[in-house]
Design a protein around this nucleic acid. Structure first.
Lengths: 222, 222
DNA sequence: ACTGGTAGTGCAACGGTGTTGCACTACCAG
DNA sequence: CTGGTAGTGCAACACCGTTGCACTACCAGT
């Protein structure tokens, strides 16, 4: 991953390789220290290039993380539809709200970087990025969300608005809960140590699954 | 609201008055331009004092907005419990998930500044603030949320975990939806103008009410 | 009534951020 | 061999939140 400073990327493949290295460095740092605390200099030194050089690959800091968010949506959409389709084939008749909720929750938690990104997308990433870039992201995210919604409708009696709301709730709640309970932060240790706050502690996955199960059960009418 | 520069605040009441002016200026600017775009200099010039002077009233920029968030929680909690209690007295036997959801959604939308703040709380405001300050906020917010949950349990057959999840969902989803659909932003105009994105447009209140209604119905078992 | 101390204030500077202009230089094409 | 180009690093910029410093209007004690 260490790139020689004087070895310039001329070919298209070399540029893609370098772009990939930037995204990898940003992902690793964001996962370890939180997006808020990752600076351009950090990412750049992780790759071995100067930050100004890095901004020839991405027009802005936010675009780097928005690109990671794009991949997060694609990967999550793929992972969840695979699991939903697996159920559909195996059982043949659908599944319970509980099963669907568990799949949504577990596949989200399996992508901690995506969880970290989710809350930042509407708040920070989509702003401070040119309109074409945000539009490209939006189209991909909307498409990915629609695929998940379609997968849900194959198993449970949901209309399209309800399925869309389930996906929106799953992602938005994941982002919010993750930020409240992200491990390793000062806030988390406050929860763990202070007896006045201990009873309000949050465990992301079971809480998320519980909410989604309730929502799905309500939408399915039972 | 214009404070003479050379008129110093000596008495306790004068200090409180000035503190109030700072919060008022921050609230107005945050509501108009979004928290992200409000700087300390903006708030300070709105009050008529220097930004460095302002930081003797609040230890940090984030604390200003966290104080506004504290009030938001208190006011919302009061507004929603008043409405819930009103139903309880009038009907005597509880209400439908639809009615409760409508109350939660409408009272939240009625406080646009709180909506704007909600997404920022776990992401930005609770960090970059000293631990005592964040603990004080947490205790108030937890208490306010508990009061809303109790109000819900007086009308609908929910256990305490479910009621807490409903409140958490209501606030977190409001914050997320608000950031996606905040009017007046470049992103919003993109949604409105671009035909490729028009079908994905978001209307916060009906969407929020629909989600909460589904969740409540699911939790109530019908 | 005067005066020393204090507390509230504004200014300027600091460190750090994301971003941009500029000069360099390694390569490729002729 | 050489001129042009394109990728790079450095340094500067503008701006942010924050902090140190000097000033001065007031209050308290003699």
């Amino acid at each position: 991953m260490a790139i020689n400073t004087f070895e310039r990327a001329r070919s298209v493949s070399a540029k893609q390789e370098r772009e990939e290295a930037i995204l990898g460095s940003a992902a690793e740092l964001a996962l370890r220290h939180g997006i808020r605390n990752v600076t351009l200099t950090d990412i750049a030194t992780g790759v071995g290039m100067h930050k100004s050089t890095m901004l020839r690959y991405f027009e802005t800091r936010e675009e780097i993380f928005l690109r990671l968010a794009t991949r997060g949506w694609i990967e999550w959409s793929a992972a969840v539809t695979v699991q939903l389709d697996g159920i559909e084939v195996g059982e043949g008749i659908g599944c319970t709200p509980q099963e669907a909720a568990a799949i949504l929750a577990s596949t989200l938690i399996a992508q901690p970087l995506f969880c970290e990104l989710l809350a930042h997308i509407p708040l920070n990433l989509e702003r401070g990025v040119s309109l074409p870039v945000v539009k490209e992201f939006k189209l991909i995210a909307i498409d990915a969300a629609a695929r998940v919604a379609t997968g849900l409708r194959g198993l449970l009696p949901l209309d399209s608005v309800q399925a869309g709301n389930v996906v929106a709730t799953a992602t938005a709640m994941t982002g919010a809960l993750w930020q409240m309970a992200a491990p390793g932060t000062a806030l988390r240790s406050l929860y763990d140590s202070d007896p006045e706050l201990a009873h309000a502690r949050i465990d992301v996955e079971p809480r998320l699954a519980n909410i989604l199960e309730g929502l799905l059960a309500g939408y399915c009418g039972r």
